[in-house]
């Protein structure tokens, strides 16, 4: 299993996306509270670079979190 750690700023609705394709990179998080989140990737981590990871919060422009970390477990 491959996982991703991202950091949010506030409570909101949002999804983690690949900012290039617009695809969701995980199907596990749709409500986000502030803080760090560990999410399971729904596609291989090798499919995108950390720079592509973005968080689409409540329909706003995708934000690129500073904390991006992949790990396997």
């Amino acid at each position: 299993m491959e996982y991703l750690v991202v950091k949010y700023k506030g409570n909101d609705c949002g999804v983690i996306i690949d900012d290039v394709t617009g695809d969701w990179v995980t199907n596990e998080v749709s409500w986000v509270s502030a803080g760090h989140h560990v999410v399971r990737l729904s596609m291989p981590a090798g499919s995108f670079t950390p720079a592509q990871i973005a968080v689409e919060l409540n329909g706003t422009s995708p934000q690129h979190p500073k904390t991006i970390q992949f790990f396997q477990a």
């Binding site: 950091k7 700023k9 803080g35």
Partner: peptide, 8 residues
Amino acid sequence: VARDDYYL
């Protein structure tokens, strides 16, 4: 990772 969330 949550230990860095004191202010968030």
